[in-house]
Amino acid sequence: MHNLYLRRVLLTCYNKTHGVVNVQICRSYCDRQPKTDQIQLSRKSPKTERRDQIGPPDVKSNLRHVKFHVPENETASERAFRERMEEIQQWNQDFWENHNNLYRKAKKEYVAAKLDQLGHFHDDGTKRNLSPDEMADFYREFSIENRNKHIRYNKEWYKMNILSLWPALKLATSQIFKAKT
């Protein structure tokens, strides 16, 4: 029977609001006096590719990227479909990366301006954080400003998404037949 000590495990990761932070990953136990350990998980995709690889949410666009597996004897239609999917993925990435950057920048500017106006500290000396009500103006303005952009994006995305369904179906059925013969 061992008695164990608690060990704190910290994970260095990127957080949207706080930048690089240490997160307590979870508690772990050790049989000696504990000390804080720090580990870092890699965001790189693995080298071996037997199947498609799905990534973690992208830091900038929040989208999960797929690394498509390239089979050895890839047919022309498979290749065309894969390239089309990669194209759509890149297009989505570009849009959301831009958009989220824009949001971050606009929010920063708004918060700075609002704090200049209201004062950076409360009367009792604590730091002022903007309340949701004070942020509401920003949310509204940002939404209204970007409305047309989103409508265009939405239309385009629906088109791409729906049009890629048919080749996907054709490929899937041909692969089923291939597997049977």
Partner: peptide, 25 residues
């Protein structure tokens, strides 16, 4: 499944608002 818990918030610059980095368990 893994639940990651935020360990320490970003140290704030204003006086009197520093929270001790307590483990949430």
């Amino acid at each position: 499944k893994a639940v990651y818990r935020k360990f320490a918030t970003k140290p704030s610059k204003g006086p009197g608002s520093v929270k001790p980095p307590i483990e949430v368990m």
